[in-house]
Structures are given as C-alpha cells and as structure tokens.
Design a protein around this nucleic acid. Structure first.
Lengths: 231, 231
DNA sequence: TAAACCATATGACATTTGTCATATTTGCTA
DNA sequence: TAGCAAATATGACAAATGTCATATGGTTTA
C-alpha cells in the first residue's frame, strides 16, 4: 500500500456529486482535510476482520472482495464490489470492530475519511444524513439479495450467476479477465474448488463459455442466463 | 390484522428510550401523530415483496419472518426477528419497493410510522440520525453474518445453528415452542423439508433434543453447540 | 362430524457434491 | 533462469442431499 498525494483529484471525483453533493463548501473542506488516499495492489488487505472501525472508506478505482475467515482458516467471500458500492458502510456506525475483511482484487484506490468528520457532517447536514441512509439501504439490500440468490441454487446456477454478474454488473462486457481464482470463486458460491472448476469445464465443453486462463468469454449468454434463472 | 387504539402504551415503550430517546417532546409528538398500531395474528402478512415502502415499521411484541418468494412460488426465509430487530430498516430510505416479505409467526404488535415523519425527525435531530444509522448497521450485519454461518455449514450444523439461535437469542430457554413449521425451517436453512425432519429425528435419537410436536427441549446443549461450531 | 388438507415422519433410491489422488501449467522468487 | 509453490484440471469413489412414495396424525372447513 502506498499513500497518494493527488489531493486535487477529488474535485473531479464522482462521489463529490453522488455522496457529498449536498455538503456546503465548508463541510466539504472538513471532509477533505480528514481524508487520505491509499493505493493497494492486487492481493493486499485493506481491512482485517476485527480491526476497529474509525474510518469511512470508499473505492475510487479498482475492485475488492469482502470476506470472512472461519476457525479453520478457510476464507468465505461475501461479495465482490466495485466503486459505487460503499462497502465500508456495512459495519460502520455500529461502534464495533469490523465483522469482515476487505482485500484488493486489482490495483485499487481507496479514500479514507476519519469517521468523526463524517459524523460531524451528518450532524450539520440533514440531506447528507439521508444520502448515507439511502446508500446503506442499497448496499445491504444488494448483499442480502446476492447471498439469497446463491443459497437457493445448485452449483451450475451459482457459477452461472457469478459469470453473469461479472459480465453485466462489473465489466459490462461478455469477455473479461476473471478477477478471482477458481478457489475464490468456490469460496464465493460456497462450493469446493474442484467442483467449481468442473462446472466451468462443463460450460466450456457445452459451448456456453470459452476460457483462456483467466480470460472468460461468454459465447451463449442466453443459455447461461437460463441456467442461472432455473437454478 | 386489526388496528389498536392503545396509544397511551407508547409512553412505556422500550423504543421510547432505545430509538427515540434523543428526540425532543415536539419531535416525539410528530412521530406519535404519524404512528398507528396494528396487531397481526399468526400467519398474517405484514409486508408483501414489491410493496412500496412508505412507512417505518417496528415490532413491539411478537415474532416475524423475513422472506422472499422465488419464481416457482417457493418461499425462502432470510431471518426470524423479534422486537429490537428493526427489520423494516433494511429496505427503507432506498426509495424503492420492498425486496422482502414479512409475516407474523405469532400474535405480533407492529408500530407503523409514516416515513415522512421519520425523515423530518432525522433532518431536525442529528443524534436521532446517528441512532438510525447505528441500528441499521447492526441489523444488516446481523442478517449477513447469519446467512454466512448457514451457507458454510452442512445440514446438521445448520439445524443446530437454528436450534441454538432460538434457544439463546429468541426464547432464552432450552425448552421452547418451535415458531415455524419443519418446512419453514428447511426454507430458512436452504434444505428440503424431508432432510430437515430427518436431521431433527437424528438429534432426537442421539439424545441431543426431545420433541413433542412443536415443543423442543435441548437436552445436551454442549453437544448441540459443538455440532453447530464444527459444521 | 366427515372430508380434505397439511405437517410430520421414514424408507428406498437418484442425484449432487465432497474428498483424495494425481498431473500439468502458471507465476513468483531466490 | 531454475526451482518451488500455487492454480488449474480431471478421475474415481465416498458422503451428503434431493426426490418420490407412502403412512399417520392433527387441524381446518364445508
């Protein structure tokens, strides 16, 4: 991880409008002074489970995984998030330590705002408070619906769901570089690595996808979407 | 469902302190005027998936299930909640329709506050805004951790998890009347009704629990907790 | 009160998923 | 660049879970 000094960049940041749009100049300056920018490389851990929460984090660029580690040391992914999903909101404001870990899946730019500054802004600006509540509703709903969709499907439906999720929501393209290993994909859908690989191979043999290492190409989107719908 | 007229009751309500404790008399009166009390019998639906959200709901008494219905008409339970879990917060403030249904598992008293009044209180009282954020963090964290615990276990661990959850969190007793059918229990742990029943029978044969219809008695809490820990 | 329906229960068997073994390829580091 | 560790891949078999059939008891409703 390295600290960035590109403080000017935030004047053009999408969150300036999306999240901080209602703040006055003064309030915005307050936030900005409590803010640091950090760059993480693939694989680096941004937050570790049980870390105390004293910052409000948001992604400016990149991709992260949210996960928990069980008592045997096995990881279980909860979600994959891109900028726009304010993941750190989930445990924030509960005055507790984080229930989750966060790690970078690719080069990721994270903004870190001291929680006290955010709380101050919430107290001085009511529209901002409502925006935070609104974002939080969206994010927790998204995570719960995702986990629900996975829980009720069998392995083919689960793999198809993730492949379509990455194509539609993350990369907006039928061809993309898979951001996680097969093992992590298994950890995301609560299946073993072997069966996850087998299912991908099956999709390849059936002509639904093409695989060249990490590069995935969805050849028959309709069929894939149907597998994911019927479970 | 019937409307209650027991408006006086809210002076002694636990939420008066827990959630509304920071409000001024005026703000509290505003909330109170936008409030209705409803009583639901076991089985009645409180909120239906896709209903527009225009109220802030909280349970005063009783027990509810949060669930989604899939395209085949099969229900999937997301959680079981008692007073203190403000479930309606989950989708609220997102300006959307509900992603979930809510139904009463026993006679349940629900307070319904017009969302506009809540928003007004958030805008006029900053401490209240932080309280709402705090509650929301807790609730969504709770649901996500629950789903995570279930996803990573096999059927015995899942059943044990729910039996312990009901004993420790809901009834605070090793003997209780199971609030859901075996089918609903299966829907909660994402397993078939048959295998859910089989697992309960196995626990009974092994002397871990006793069953008399709906009445469950945990005989060997230690062993049950161990099954739920080891998966 | 009888009939219909649903919840509980269990067996037999099919299907899905996990485990273990093994091989090859990829990517990282000394 | 060689060597090592991890990722990808596949087969054989074991274990877990689902499906279908059937039975019984309880509850609701005509």
């Amino acid at each position: 991880m390295r600290i960035s000094n590109d403080i000017e960049s935030c004047k053009a940041c999408i969150y300036r409008q999306l999240l901080f749009g209602d703040l006055t100049e003064n309030e915005y300056e307050l936030i900005n002074e409590a803010r640091t920018e950090r760059i993480y490389r693939r694989g680096e851990i941004i937050v570790k489970e049980n870390d105390p929460i004293d910052s409000f984090l948001y992604l400016r660029k990149g991709l992260i995984k949210l996960y928990k580690t069980d008592e045997h040391g096995k990881d279980h992914l909860i979600s994959i998030n891109k900028p726009g999903d304010f993941v750190s909101l989930l445990s924030i404001f509960s005055n507790q330590n984080s229930h989750y870990s966060i790690a970078a899946l690719e080069e990721t730019l994270v903004c870190d705002v001291q929680l006290d500054a955010i709380k101050q802004a919430i107290c001085s600006n009511n529209k901002f408070a409502l925006r935070i509540l609104n974002r939080m509703s969206h994010i927790s709903d998204g995570v719960i619906v995702n986990r629900f969709e996975i829980a009720r499907k069998q392995i083919k439906g689960r793999v198809a769901y993730i492949l379509v999720f990455l194509a539609d929501h993350i990369y907006k393209n039928h061809e993309y570089r898979m951001p996680i290993t097969r093992r992590e994909l298994g950890e995301l859908i609560s299946m073993t690595t072997e069966n996850t690989i087998r299912t991908l191979s099956e999709f390849r043999k059936d002509g639904i996808i093409e695989m060249d290492g990490r590069i995935i190409t969805i050849l028959d989107y309709k069929r894939l979407a149907n597998i994911f719908k019927t479970g």
